[in-house]
Nucleic acid binder design. Structure first.
Length: 424
RNA sequence: GGCCCCGUGGUGUAGUUGGUUAACACACCCGCCUGUCACGUGGGAGAUCGCGGGUUCGAGUCCCGUCGGGGCCGCCA
């Protein structure tokens, strides 16, 4: 018999159907037994006549029965079956009760047992939304003439020369886990003009915050033959719109379950110069701050634009050279064509126009007190007609976190890697 | 890296002027129960109270150390 998904049950009232999934929960009244069967599409109640030895929750099961409407059933319908077949039993009780995990367990406990707690409806939903966002990312960029690339994750040196690299042994030599595909995507602009990559990156930073991961999914974009960073932002605007639309269209049940309010995305996201952002933070919001916009300032800016204009996205543009990487395009006045995208007060993107003239790269390296000789391989790449180009990277988990309103970015990754977590 | 907080059955908690069988709920096991939906109900098993040391007649409780974990900040996406 062909399998029916739980979500298709209402459309098959009166028919005999077969369901396969996990025993979500059981209520055994003796002469009548109820089980909730969960599959990839949802949950439906199955009623059995009494007398069965019901397997433990999370057992994989199959039932055949009649789909019926019933006011007494959750959702108004259920499946009446005579028997159930255990495809593979759960061999021990789950560490936390899956249907009740949200209010029976601490968040940290849920991460420890993630291999099974991920099965909870509210645990699995964010990753489904994220999957849709990434699909939207790919679909939109494919439609705009971009080519998906796959760059090495084992590298000899960091893209940004930072110290936050994980060192690995490479046949006796030192290698590192890539902290960014930056250089490679720039090289590939010289090949395909427009490229993107969906891949993990690693940052060996010993922070412990609700928005950091040591391994995260970077949605990288780079494009050639641009006039300025404005072209990059214009693309990102449409890209973000497409990602949200894909999520709304294909992850509707999950967004409903998580009670997500879709963000306010205006036709054009405001471009706020860095100096103006600092002025707002200082004068209008009365916050003190250091050289860069700190986290508190970004949150405050997010609220400022959300409350005043009802928009959840803001570009901060014209960052000063001092707070951007060396490859950021300078405009000669101490500022750059580097920008950040804030989403609900959190930086989800860093981007901008890059330097395409190797002489200027050397000049900027020296200005930052970095040794150009150490970046010889990087500079070499730009000696063969590199067009004006720029790009950005979106932190997939952060985007997901802010869209859904997750308290911690870890829940936007199936198996988060943080300072203390290398398992599961 | 800085500051603050927390470790008690599988899970969530109670137990602090130190006192003898460490309590409760859920889960699990054995019964009863034909419309449950956090099912109900009777019984049962399950914890050397993170670890080590100290104080004391006596430590889950006080002290020291250690390990593990969490939050915020710095920095980043």
């Amino acid at each position: 018999m062909e399998r029916t998904l739980t979500s298709e049950v209402p459309g098959k009232i009166g028919e005999e159907i077969e369901l396969q999934g996990w025993l979500h929960w059981r209520r055994d009244l003796g002469g009548i037994q109820f089980i909730l069967l969960r599959d990839r599409a949802g949950i439906v109640q199955v009623v059995l006549p009494g007398g069965h030895k019901l397997p433990l929750p999370e057992s994989a099961v199959r039932v055949r029965g009649i789909a019926v409407e019933n006011d007494k059933a959750p959702g108004g319908y259920e499946v009446q079956a005579e028997d159930l077949k255990v495809l593979q039993p759960s061999q021990q009780p789950t560490p936390v009760e899956i249907p009740k995990e949200e209010w029976r367990a601490n968040p940290e406990t849920l991460l420890t047992y993630r291999y099974v707690t991920l099965r909870g409806e509210k645990a699995r939903a964010p990753l489904k939304v994220q999957s849709a966002l990434v699909r939207g990312f790919r679909k939109y960029l494919d439609s705009q003439g971009f080519t998906e690339i796959f760059t090495p994750k084992l590298v000899r040196a960091g893209a940004e020369g930072g110290a936050n690299l994980f060192e690995v042994d490479y046949f006796g030599e030192s290698a590192y886990l890539a902290q960014s595909p930056q250089l490679y995507k720039q090289i590939m602009v010289g090949v395909y003009e427009r490229v993107y990559e969906v891949a993990p990156v690693w940052r060996a930073e010993e922070h412990a915050t609700s928005r950091h991961l040591n391994e995260y999914l970077s949605l990288d974009v780079e494009m050639g033959f641009i006039e300025s960073d404005e072209d990059v932002m214009a693309l990102e605007e449409e890209l973000v719109r497409a990602m949200l639309e894909e999520a709304a269209m294909t992850a509707g049940p999950e967004l409903d379950l998580l009670e997500v309010s879709m963000p306010g995305l205006p036709r054009e996201i405001p471009r706020v110069p860095y100096s103006e952002a600092k002025r707002i933070v200082k004068e209008e919001l009365g916050l003190g701050m250091g050289a860069d916009l700190n986290d508190e300032a970004e949150r405050a800016l997010g609220e400022y634009f959300s409350e005043r204009y009802g928009i959840d996205f803001v570009f901060i543009v014209q960052y000063p050279e001092s707070v951007r990487p060396f490859y950021t395009y300078p405009t000669g006045d101490g500022l750059t064509r580097g920008y950040d995208l804030l989403f609900r007060g959190l930086e989800i993107t860093s981007g901008g126009q890059r330097i395409h003239d190797p002489a200027i790269i050397v000049q900027q390296l020296e200005k930052k007190g970095m040794e150009p000789e150490r970046f010889r391989d990087y500079i070499e790449v730009f000696k063969y007609g590199m067009p004006p180009h720029g790009g950005f990277a979106i932190g997939a988990e952060r985007f997901t976190q802010k869209l859904i309103g997750l308290p911690n970015v870890r829940y936007a990754r199936a198996f988060p890697r943080d300072r203390h977590r290398l398992e599961p």
